[in-house]
Design a protein around this nucleic acid. Structure first.
Length: 565
RNA sequence: GCGCCUGUAGCUCAGCAGGAUAGAGCAACGGACUUCUAAUCCGUAGGCCAGGGGUUCGAAUCCCUUCAGGCGCGCCA
């Protein structure tokens, strides 16, 4: 088996080729008109009586040539060569489906492939080494991360893992907005807290950040430096405080994400971009292309030329950039670093911004379709029936740290990944915290732990725990639950690729639930450690490869795979 | 007013570039542990896929429209 592809794709492609040849032959013999083009899709039907694989090409073809579905299906079957293949039988079923029944040889090969690849099983090279940068979370360095950030973190990290496994070179990046107006306000807020801690009575900035965390940082600053910061000249003090508070908060954010099992490749500083003069350069480029103009004392980008619904100010009448200029420069920088494709995961409150940004990068001459934006919808925290308020102003604010502490990393990741990014989700704190069968995260983890337990037991009984595929008699695995499980495990590499392509990491969770369910059924129906040594060996093998798949899938989701529970 | 997202079982949500009889978890009900972990399994019940049009051999899925909910429409970021 080739390192970089999968048994399942080999099987599907083989069936596809045979159908294509059969259609050609039918055309040559005049059974089908020769202008038809077939897009052959091979699926795995849910019901065993519908075969191991199936296709609906005949129906699509029939509607194209305006004749009976089943007769087209008949024509294909008539010319279909089954020579030298795993296909044993082809049925025409329902309205015109072709159902393929295969001998189990392909499953055996797939099971051997899992053994051989181990932790790498599920990986393919379909992505061809294309470079993708995925930017996510990128919360302002003005406060601790919250529940929405936690969702974006789970989605972004898992998507990155899926794409890595699909053969892309992926970089995880966090953009730190450590420049501009908001961090000035942040520095002023800290200064006020700092002075208050030192006993001065000073007014708090009107739009300042009122969170507790700034008081904590101020206290630490006093402990560290006393009142010496006050001695600095105004502008120097402001810069110092700004640098200090931003680095402290970014440090905290980093730690929170680390506790979540997430490590970025790059923390990209907006300030560094500004220090290099990148925004000016980007602006200059737009000017040279004649895409900006003066109006009402400001400078505007003609963004409507690139699909925006109105033109945008780039230089305010006070001479400062609007936020979009450094952002455009940032995305230019991403392209200049050699990425073929950019993915940004943004909150729903930023969706209005997407066309603007795309217009911006188009104005610089980069292809806007190379920037893809995924909107991660809102998170509503609930306890049972009660909604937990999330306002920053006051009341109960749940930070990502508190969420992690309360529910744990695994449950958080799992819950956030369970739903499609586009789905507005309710995160039930009570349920996530529950250490019982009501909590779905345990369903998958338990399957993994149960398998580990079988191997512990086997070792105790002195059973050889792990025979390789060449020593296994696969023909003993004939129970429906065994077949079902093997099919699911064989599908993993293709699933991983499809989940990544669809940008829907939630389907990975779905897949894991299916594998876990198949295993639990198998476990109940089939005794693994029994009198029949040959059968035991085969079932131990099956348990082992199932464990490999569960571990690999859990790893991609960032959820731990416990040996015991 | 314009734009984006959502509407599927009592609850939370899946449903894989349209396909065969719409699924899962939880909640409800009935069964299964002297044998590898019962955080499990097996079964029962539960649905005009928000409403209405359309596209086609075929629609929960695509298009239009109405209704309902969430969010966004700054010389804030």
């Amino acid at each position: 088996m080739d390192e970089s592809t999968s048994v399942i794709s080999k099987v599907k492609n083989d069936i596809k080729d045979r159908i294509a040849k059969a259609i050609d032959k039918a055309k040559a013999k005049g059974d089908l008109p020769d202008y038809v083009e077939a897009d052959i899709k091979i699926t795995m039907p849910a019901r065993p009586e519908q075969g191991d694989f199936a296709t609906s090409v005949a129906m699509a073809l029939a509607s194209e040539v305006k004749c009976d579905d089943r007769s087209v299906a008949g024509a294909i079957v008539r010319y279909l060569s089954l020579e030298d293949s795993w296909i044993q039988r082809v049925d025409i079923a329902g309205p015109g489906f072709l159902n393929f029944f295969l001998s189990t040889g392909w499953l055996e090969e797939a099971m051997a492939d899992i053994w051989k690849k181990g932790p790498a099983y599920g990986s393919t090279n379909y992505g061809g080494g294309k470079k993708i940068l995925i930017e996510f979370v990128s919360a302002n360095p003005t406060g601790p991360l919250n529940a929405v950030n936690a969702r974006a973190a789970a989605i972004g990290d898992c998507l990155a893992s899926l794409l890595e496994a699909s053969g892309y070179r992926v970089s995880r990046e966090y953009y730190v907005n450590d420049a501009g107006n908001q961090v000035d306000v942040l520095a002023d807020s800290l200064e006020a807290r700092y002075r208050q801690v030192l006993g001065q009575e000073v007014p708090f900035p009107e739009n300042g950040y009122r969170g507790e965390y700034l008081i904590d940082i101020a206290k630490e600053l006093v402990a560290e430096k006393g009142d010496t910061i006050l001695e600095l000249p105004d502008s120097e003090r402001h810069e110092w405080l700004k640098q200090y508070v931003v680095s402290r908060i970014v440090e905290q954010q980093k730690q929170t994400l680390l506790n979540y099992g997430l490590e970025y490749d790059t923390w990209f500083s907006e300030k560094s971009l500004r220090d290099q003069g990148a925004p000016e350069a980007a602006l200059e480029l737009m000017r040279q292309k004649g895409l900006t103009y003066e109006k009402d004392g400001a400078e505007w980008l003609n963004s409507t030329m690139f699909g925006d619904d109105k033109d945008r100010v780039v230089v305010k009448s006070d001479g400062n950039f609007t936020y979009i200029v450094p952002d455009i420069a940032y995305h230019k920088n991403k392209f200049d670093r050699g990425y073929d494709h950019l993915i940004n995961i943004l909150g729903p409150d930023h969706h209005g911004y997407v066309t603007r940004l795309k217009a911006g990068i188009a104005a610089l001459g980069y292809p806007p379709e190379s920037l893809e934006v995924i909107i991660a919808q809102t998170v509503r925290l609930v306890r049972g029936k009660q909604v937990v308020k999330m306002s920053k102003r006051g009341g109960e604010f749940i930070s990502m740290d508190e969420l992690l502490e309360e529910a744990g990393k695994d449950a958080c990741r799992f819950f956030f990944l369970m739903r499609a990014p586009s789905s507005h989700l309710d995160f039930d704190l009570d349920l996530a915290r529950l250490q019982s069968n009501e909590n779905p995260v345990y369903y998958v983890q338990y399957a993994h732990a149960r398998i580990a337990s079988i191997f512990r037991q086997a070792r105790q009984e002195g059973v050889v725990p792990a025979l390789g595929p060449n020593e296994i008699n696969f023909s003993l695995l004939r129970e429906p639950s065994e077949i079902q499980m093997m099919k699911l495990l064989a599908a993993f590499p293709e699933e991983v690729y499809e989940f990544g392509q669809a940008r829907e990491p939630n389907r990975l969770i779905n897949y894991m639930m299916n594998v876990a369910s198949a295993f639990h059924s198998f476990y109940t129906q089939c005794r693994v450690l029994g009198e029949d040594k040959e059968l035991s060996a085969a079932r131990l093998y099956l348990a082992r490869v199932c464990q490999i798949v569960l571990a690999n899938a859990l790893r991609m989701a960032g959820v731990s795979a416990p040996e015991s529970m």
